[in-house]
Design a protein around this nucleic acid. Structure first.
Lengths: 109, 109
DNA sequence: TGATTATTTAACCAAAAAATTAAATAGTAG
DNA sequence: CTACTATTTAATTTTTTGGTTAAATAATCA
């Protein structure tokens, strides 16, 4: 599977998506912190982390007895590039998007 | 499932992704044209189209005996918004991205 | 109306994905 | 070295996904 499809696939699961969001919000975290509040066994979270790792969305670092996880740009960049390359299909009606992007700062055509 | 996760899920399948790409490249097409070259039965393609429709990624229009499909911005916009809102995580190393975006045209912070 | 074309839906099956519990690994501390 | 903590891997089960063929729908045409 292409890196882009792998990234879409990894993010299509609610648990994995919430892990990525948490790492974006709170920065580098040990697995233990990622298990809390997900309503799932540590083993399940561990396997989700493996999927995210293989998709290039997160990276692992060893600190003593724990593994620290953080967001890795690679997988995300694949999505960003694709999205931007297809922007003609979503930028047309800027209604809600206007909240995020001022129209002065436009993309190159 | 949230619209964003539904969109990721819909695009994570190679066949569905290629349908979306084809519609973006060639514009509105009847189902028959989408079946060709996908190496799969029409019934299978029809079910993939249903998934894409429910994800808001494509729309259907009836023309006589055939259904014409085209890209719909909704689902795509969910991905675009999320990607842009998280750009700090992928814009850092602009190496390959520089090909798409001139640095003068930057996003608002 | 009856046949033809285009597409969807139904019933079914195999393969992949996601969860569980239990066992294995690895680092740290006593 | 032994025990403890943190996390991963194994074995197993359940659920979901994606494909198939056959039947159902719908519009058009002779």
């Amino acid at each position: 599977m292409t890196p882009l499809l792998t990234a879409f696939s990894a993010l299509s699961d609610a648990t994995r998506f919430s892990i990525v969001e948490q790492l974006m919000d709170e920065g580098e975290l040990p697995v233990g912190d990622l298990i809390e509040g997900k309503g799932m066994s540590g083993a399940a979270i561990s396997r989700h982390l493996k999927v995210l790792r293989e998709a290039g969305l997160v990276q692992q670092r060893v600190r003593g007895t724990q593994r620290m996880y953080s967001v890795q740009p690679e997988g995300l960049r694949a999505i960003a590039e694709w999205t931007i390359s297809k922007r003609q299909f979503w930028e047309s009606s800027l209604d809600r998007l206007g909240e995020l992007i001022e129209k002065e700062n436009s993309w190159p055509t």
